[in-house]
Simulated scan of single mutants.
Amino acid sequence: MRKTLVFLSLIILTFLSCEKDDFCTQNPVTPNLILRFYDDSNRETLKVVDNLYVWAEGKDSLFINASLDSLFIPLNSAATETVYNFSKNNIINQFTIQYTIENEYISRSCGFKVIFNDVNFASNNTWITDFEPATLTVEKQTEAHVQIYH
């Protein structure tokens, strides 16, 4: 009887000492900025950008010789501004994104999520003729945040 009681106690202590596994199910937590490229003459029609090179100021290129109608780019969560260069056929357009940062606690396993508020866009409009911010907050990655016309 004593051996059985000791054995049961050890089993109970073993199960009580186990920690719950934490997995972050929200991936990615911090959203990227989503850009969609449209035809300037027909603003409802998506338009592919041929030979697109993209790089953040002071960084290497993200996409080399890509042809895209949409682009996901990360924003710098350690700063309040991110500057990207978009090159199309060797014509460079500088696109500046300014924002404020809000950290939101998600869970112990995921940590914090960065939400970009008060987002403002500026461009030197070389090959990009116009753009429309669709939102002033970048919190999710479910739809485009900016429509770029070229």
Rank of each mutant, 00 (worst) to 15 (best):
V49E: 01
G111W: 00
N32D: 12
K3Y: 07
Q147T: 11
S17F: 02
F23G: 08
V29E: 09
T4H: 13
Y105N: 07
R43L: 09
T4P: 04
L68S: 06
R2V: 04
D21R: 12
S17E: 05
A144Y: 03
S123N: 03
K20M: 10
S87D: 10
Q94E: 10
I91F: 06
Q141S: 13
N89D: 14
N117F: 04
T100A: 14
I106H: 08
N51Y: 13
S70N: 12
I91G: 06
N65W: 13
N42E: 15
M1D: 09
N65G: 14
F86C: 02
N76P: 00
T45G: 12
L75Q: 01
N42Y: 12
F37V: 01
S109F: 09
Q94N: 11
R36P: 01
Y53N: 15
L75Y: 01
L8A: 11
E19S: 15
L71W: 03
P31N: 05
E132N: 12
P74K: 05
Y84S: 05
T135C: 05
F72S: 04
V114F: 00
A66D: 06
T45M: 13
D60H: 13
L16Y: 04
V119Q: 00
L71E: 01
Q26N: 14
N85K: 09
G111P: 07
F116A: 00
D40M: 13
A79Q: 10
T30W: 00
T126R: 03
M1A: 10
I12W: 03
V6G: 08
I101E: 07
K47M: 14
D50A: 15
W55H: 11
S17H: 00
S87L: 09
P74Q: 05
E132Q: 11
V83A: 10
S87R: 11
